[in-house]
Write a protein that binds this DNA or RNA. Sequence first.
DNA 1: GTGTTATTTAACAAATGAGGCAAATAATGA
DNA 2: TCATTATTTGCCTCATTTGTTAAATAACAC
Lengths: 114, 114
Amino acid sequence: MNVQTIFSALSDPTRFAIVEQLLEKGDQTAGSLAEPFDISKPAISRHLKVLEEAGVIERRIDRQFRSFRVRPQSMRSLDDWIGRYRRFWQTSFDRLEKVLQDKKEEENTDADRD
Amino acid sequence: MNVQTIFSALSDPTRFAIVEQLLEKGDQTAGSLAEPFDISKPAISRHLKVLEEAGVIERRIDRQFRSFRVRPQSMRSLDDWIGRYRRFWQTSFDRLEKVLQDKKEEENTDADRD
DNA sequence: GTGTTATTTAACAAATGAGGCAAATAATGA
DNA sequence: TCATTATTTGCCTCATTTGTTAAATAACAC
């Protein structure tokens, strides 16, 4: 599961919204996914294809129903990616917080001096 | 911090690699960030600008040094976004695992029949 | 100030992406 | 099979993005 590809797939506002929709409401057909948007069905269809090829969603054909759903693996990949760097950004976040705090205090002191 | 904008910023392979580089190695100058890539400095400069405007990185000018670093807040935003839906994709992940397993067994049975 | 290195802006060409409409293809039900 | 509804493909247009080179700026060291 290529994380960079997932980012690309979610870089479009419509696709991002589609995925949020699926995450919140669960499986849905292409038609109902298209409904909230002001763009044509073919356009939605193509967005769905992009998401599918990136492995973000999958098409499910179950008897008379065809619907889409988010592939949990893709979310897990994103989660893993962020997690892999968590200690870097989290520690640097803490460190940064402190630095900014110190700096602010320092500046205030300077200001007070002036 | 707009998550969708962050996804857009990270949708380009070069920008994605730049961010990974910064996460792994810490602060770096535009020059050293450009080095591993086969594209021109101006191109990198613009990628850095896109990342900066999306709030993914920030430019730091500290005495004689100018460098870039990842803004931890952006990573935290991504993390929050995924976290917000975690229970949806995580539970459906477990459920899905089972469904797929069942389905696979069923298909194999069908195949064996043919 | 001058020269030197690092980085950004300007101007432009090529590639990519998103959207629309019409036609083609699937899937369902009579 | 035929009609109907749902979805996808083909083809074209327009806008945005990415990359290039040359020139402009910035930051430093003398």
